[in-house]
């Protein structure tokens, strides 16, 4: 994990999203989710290649169900991009790196 990847929990979510100097792409994931495992290395690459432009926030839904419920996550992986503390875009389901970048680039 690079510096541009952070771990987010129910307790730290608000503070981390509010104080981040870059948009944060929060990855709602779990250990038992196959597609989440496919997306994880892609998100690591995106984080290190776009350091300073976007932060990847890893949120384990098993341990942090309150935040998952708050944003009505019903399928994982779900990735929500937060900009200036507000959700601006939502991606549901695993995608290729090209497709993920295309989705988030206009918001960075």
């Amino acid at each position: 994990m690079s510096d541009s990847t952070i771990t987010i929990t129910d307790n730290t979510f608000d503070e981390q999203i509010k104080t981040s100097s870059t948009p944060v792409l929060v990855d709602f994931w779990a250990e038992w989710c196959g597609p989440c495992k496919m997306v994880a290395p892609i998100l690591d690459e995106i984080a290190s290649e776009n350091a300073g432009k976007v932060t990847i926030g890893k949120l384990n839904v098993d341990d942090n169900i309150r935040t998952a419920q708050r944003f009505e996550v019903m399928s994982i992986p779900t990735m929500i991009l937060f900009k200036d503390g507000e959700p601006v875009m939502r991606i549901v389901g695993a995608k290729s790196k090209t497709a993920l970048l295309a989705d988030i680039e206009s918001h960075l």
Binding site: A30, C33, G34, V61, A68, M74, I76
Partner: peptide
């Protein structure tokens, strides 16, 4: 409604129901 209640992966999404 895919990802909003419609799912093709019980193991991924069952947890939320």
């Amino acid at each position: 409604l895919l990802g909003h209640g419609v799912s093709t992966c019980a193991t991924c999404d069952g947890f939320f129901f």
